[in-house]
Amino acid sequence: MALCDSLPALLCKFPALSDATIRAGRKTIDDGFRGFVRSYGTIIDAVVQPLQVFLNFIERLFVTSPWPIILVAMLVIVYLGSRSVKVTIGTAVAMYFIGLFGLWNDAMVTLAITTVCTIVAVVLGIPIGILMARFDRVQAVVNPTLDVMQTMPSFVYLIPVVMIFGIGKVPGMIAVVIYAVPPMIRLTNLGIRLVDKEVLEAADAFGSSGWQKLKNVQIPLALPTIMAGINQTIMMSLAMVVVASMVGVGGLGKNVLGAINNQFFTVGFLNGFALVAIAIIFDRTSQAFGKRLQKHSEVVHG
């Protein structure tokens, strides 16, 4: 540029570290990390072993059960959750078409991993959210961490996950959980913090202990918000299973990935629509359930 010609070099080219320095630093960190993984490999494996077993169990349950049983079970759950005939019929139609186009098994694999990821995210997210609501310090630490987790491109944290756990279902699941747990944590925290101060004061006035307050007042009143968190977690898990197929998660996401690589337009969209259908089923069911929980929480009088 013309302007740069008349200026000292320091102002024109950013004074970056030298390539050699960066290379050395990178190598140290990467080697250190690899060394860490190598020496603790067995421990890491032992830790994730139960997850592997659980995931395999659920997946086998979904894939090997006769389809009518799965379908009926799904319809019952959807109806109990949504109390809506419309949503239930919609589910039946969607599952019919998924089966018709030969995607039943892949859909089951996806359902299985989404279910497991959601359970793990809920089990991790709710206690963290509670701690965050309880202690401002925890919130001060967790909030920026969640910001990083949510904005970091998901492909980036696939790298350490794969380095630690290798290729497979469990690493994929961990990637999905990292991606899907933030809304769970945030909305649990928010829900508890939004609980009416007056009601909490009343609970205090009757001598509630911390646990009694949590169990009788905070969790029940935060439940609609927590449900919204679960809903978002499910949606994000479904979105992420496609990305996770890059590290070996099967199901609909893997088909989509294959379709991208081979430019199979029809296959891509069929699988895509199957994912959309499953997402809508989950969403409508969990939202209607959340709404029902909220029924009495609105203050009308006073």
Binding site: E198, D204, F206, S209, L221, H296
Partner: peptide
């Protein structure tokens, strides 16, 4: 304090403060 509140006091609130659920 918790024992005192449980067994010695009861309170009615200006803004009711009922548990909505």
């Amino acid at each position: 304090l918790r024992e005192f509140r449980r067994h010695k006091t009861a309170m009615v609130f200006q803004k009711f403060a009922l548990l909505p659920h």
